[in-house]
């Protein structure tokens, strides 16, 4: 009787082969991991991946916070106090979300500064810069909408002033303020609107743009620094 089973090494590979045959995901993963990058890339070029780490951290801590937070003017502040004072390690989750947002903005500036100094927005990477710039603006919108949610005095007044400043814009300004606040002043609806933007619309948009940004980085490759000595010489091509 011949053996019914293939050798163990082949059995171990079967799940992976099954996935690969149906989706091609393994080849995509291999392509992403084992592509070549210029050998003189610098430590300054790690900031983008650090930003993605912070984004994942913000998303994770954000989900945990959303399990306790209630976007209602009567209870929002109490749930924040509960998370900070009573929930197990709630202070750590809220603290990391709070300080993570500041660090994210700092890293965004540094990442953008690095790209600028390297001239990495030039051909063929113009679209990578544009997606990054839009992500930057959306992250600022993220922090503005997140600021109100704590619903303490600082949060409230900063948002009143922010939204009203918005209202000084001609034509669309007052309408935009009205839409943001859902009426002439901050109310229950304002808070749930900011919450929906902060935890659904904006992170969704940012996540999608990060995917596009990342795809462009992988497709076009990482630049080598402008001081690179790796120059193509005649006869080398």
């Amino acid at each position: 009787m011949s053996t019914l089973l293939p050798p163990p090494s082949e059995i171990a590979r079967m799940p992976a082969d099954w996935v690969e045959e149906r989706s091609g995901l393994l080849s995509i993963g291999k392509y992403m991991l084992f592509r070549n990058v210029p050998k003189d890339i610098s430590w300054l070029q790690t900031l983008g991946s650090a930003l993605m780490t912070v984004f994942i951290l913000q998303a994770t801590t954000g989900v945990l916070l959303a399990m306790y937070y209630q976007p209602d003017p009567n209870t929002a502040w109490n749930t924040i106090a509960f998370i900070t004072n009573d929930a197990t390690l709630g202070w750590l989750v809220r603290g990391m979300h709070k300080w993570g947002s500041s660090i994210m903005v700092v890293l965004l500036f540094l990442h953008m500064g690095r790209t600028f100094l390297f001239g990495a927005y030039k051909y063929p990477r113009e679209m990578t810069w544009i997606t990054g710039a839009i992500i930057f603006i959306l992250v600022m919108a993220m922090s503005f909408t997140g600021y109100l949610l704590v619903f303490d005095e600082r949060a409230y007044w900063a948002t009143v002033v922010g939204v009203n400043i918005n209202g000084t814009a001609p034509i669309l300004g007052p309408a935009l303020s009205y839409i943001l606040m859902v009426g002439p002043e901050i109310s229950t609806h304002t808070l749930s609107r900011f919450y929906a933007l902060h935890m659904l619309a904006l992170p969704g948009a940012i996540g999608g743009l990060i995917a596009l940004h990342l795809w462009l980085v992988i497709r076009l490759g990482v630049t080598s620094p402008p001081w690179s000595r790796m120059k193509v010489t005649e006869g080398d091509v």
Partner: peptide, 25 residues
Amino acid sequence: REYAFQKRHGKSFFPHAVFHDTIVS
């Protein structure tokens, strides 16, 4: 052409760049 040359004489993203990225993260 120049970038293709730099890439050909480059190093693999994994583990070299990933190592630096992990440390900074």
